[in-house]
Write a protein that binds this DNA or RNA. Structure first.
Lengths: 217, 217, 217, 217
DNA sequence: TATGAATGAGAATTCATTCAT
DNA sequence: TATGAATGAATTCTCATTCAT
């Protein structure tokens, strides 16, 4: 409908109105998503009240149903946004780094930064940890994806000498994942992810020690 | 009847009655706690329906009001039971082990075993991860406690030579905690803690590598 | 059953037991009634919890059902006790007094005293003021009864000259009743009937002024 | 549609919508308040079922939560409405009357009329008589207020000669209050306040007799 | 598109009453 | 008789969703 009117070219008032409304609609969607993220990052999916989302985003409760079908869809939209942002960070980092171990650490650092600064990502993480009939997430997919990437980086590290050859790549990838997840969870509990970057920084030497060769040399 | 029994002994009827009822009451409490644990280990606090708990434990819904005042108190009772059981395991293991590193690993193994086999502990872990106005847990206290213990074991390990002297005890303790928590969370998501022991077993060599001096040198 | 055993005359132990139990039963009943009265004098019938009664009287909740069939019966027992005590006071006073007006004032004073000092009477008054499907009181009967008595006292007063002959006996009786009820209600709200006697004392001159002749003479 | 209307005037659609909804909302609130008043005037606060209120007012039960937060707030709203209406009547009467005694009697008459015809006022009176943790009324404030007014009217009466100079103004004010309250309570019990005006009419001569100087002398 | 009001299906909680001992 | 535990029906409150404007 909107496109049609634009093609007609008449009634510039209507056209402008349409564009304005479109812009308004987009901003509403954004506000809604951010507001919902703020709520879902604090509370459980079941605890979170749509009224809270409405208040937090300044959008009327009824309006949410125009933009997102219902509570579950809203949550799913957040999960999707989270995955997009994390994937973006991931690919961005991987394009730059070269050495296997360096890349692995860089990825950790960047993801930590992203998580501690982006509410939508935080909300996505929390939502991903609570499966259930309502969400029915493929929340595990990203985890497996990430483990595969970690494993390939470790293999690359073994080749380029930055990782000890005695290391079992798959076990090590799982291990790295465990450390990242543990750090996330503890940071969430402690201060809502604010300290995640520092925490990862503190873990770094021990992670290196677990993976790298120099111990033996 | 009363007279008869009176001749037998001093108020045996009343005493026996009291004992019997107490036993029944205790068993009800236990069933309730276990049933609730099964529910809370699957679902979020807010998702969990008291009706499910009642069904799961075979106790009438109204009876929960008699034994535990309300949903929050029920959850708190589980949290308390969890802490008791974890503390019991902890102290038991610590009495046996000697070497710092060995003790640390033994504690991890035993706690993993406990978690993967005890629903109440599982429920406690999940509940502890969702603070909120209703629960208002001091869920962090046990974490700090545990980190202190880990730190002291690591210092002991540095003295007895099982841990590298270059290791920062506090950072390492935090690290160990991170690994345990990460393993818990991932095991929960994967198969409700069933694989936690194996997972920890897989992590063990890397943990050792991170802490110990190049066992090689 | 109890009587039977008494007639047999054997087993003095059993007989004594029976007597003891009887005494115990009576005291339980009394405690229950008093405890219930304390609760019903504070709270509405629907507000009052049988648990409160149990706590207040030190009697187990289940035991109440042995002595009184249920909540409504308990309330009815209180209402009955109240009427007995008020009637007793009434007749006692009426036997002593002679002059019409004096008798009327004496009755007011004595009833005020009784009300302000007897919880059961207080509870009865409150219960009498809340008709309902559960109680279905003939709570109005005593009121009519009392108005009749007041009217006859006033007529007597007109004869013996203590009440002005211009007074309409029935209207005046209703009036006196209104004053008593109003005083009761206000005293209840103010300090749980404690000040009722003083209040009635303060009302006395005005009541006299309304009824007696001397103003004109 | 939107464009069309825009040409007609400045946001008339939105404005009209707002007005219409407001009207509907107001009527719902009113219905709710009246329905609740009908229930609360019959039953005790604790006896009254919100379901009855919903049925009585034709409003869905859930909607009450939207307009009034809960049962207690609903009751408080009634109490407030009652006070407003009684105050309105009071001030209206006081502006007209001149002589002290006449004013006093007029106020009584008018309040009696109001009470016997306005359910909200009736409900307020009943609610005001049952303090409790839930309502926590300052129900006594209006009583004190009213007594002050009565006292000042009586003093005025003493000056203008309509009240006997021997009368103690404060005691008399209390007395008048007692009579009014007593009449209210008895009328409520007898026929739900229907006969209150007549009853007050019957009391009038005696009240006059109590206050006025022997109009005869 | 946006809004506020309305709705109804649950959810937790309460409590009189019953029951086994 | 007395007791504490158990039960279930009712009651209040909550909240996702829908609807009229």
């Amino acid at each position: 409908m909107v496109e049609q009117q634009k093609k007609v070219g008449v009634e510039p008032e209507a056209r402008r109105t349409a564009r304005v409304m479109q812009e308004r609609s987009v901003s509403t969607r954004t506000n809604l998503l951010e507001g919902a993220a703020r709520v879902f990052s604090r509370l459980t999916y079941a605890e979170a009240r749509l009224k809270d989302v409405a208040d937090e985003s300044g959008i009327s409760a009824g309006s949410m149903y125009f933009h997102f079908g219902n509570k579950a869809d809203l949550a799913r939209a957040i999960l999707q946004a989270q995955q997009e942002r994390m994937t973006a960070t991931l690919t961005e980092v991987l394009q730059q780094e070269t050495s296997g171990l360096t890349a692995l650490l860089a990825v950790s650092r960047q993801l930590g930064q992203l998580i501690s600064s982006d509410v939508v990502v935080q909300a996505g993480i929390k939502l991903g940890m609570q499966p259930g009939p309502d969400l029915e997430t493929d929340a595990k997919d990203p985890y497996f994806e990430w483990i595969k990437i970690a494993a390939s980086l470790i293999r690359q590290g073994i080749e380029d000498g930055s990782v000890a050859p005695t290391v079992d790549a798959d076990a090590a990838a799982e291990y790295v994942n465990v450390v990242l997840v543990g750090a996330q969870v503890l940071s969430e509990l402690e201060d809502s992810w604010a300290s995640l970057p520092q925490r990862l920084e503190r873990m770094k030497p021990l992670l290196i020690q677990a993976l790298s060769v120099d111990a033996t040399s």
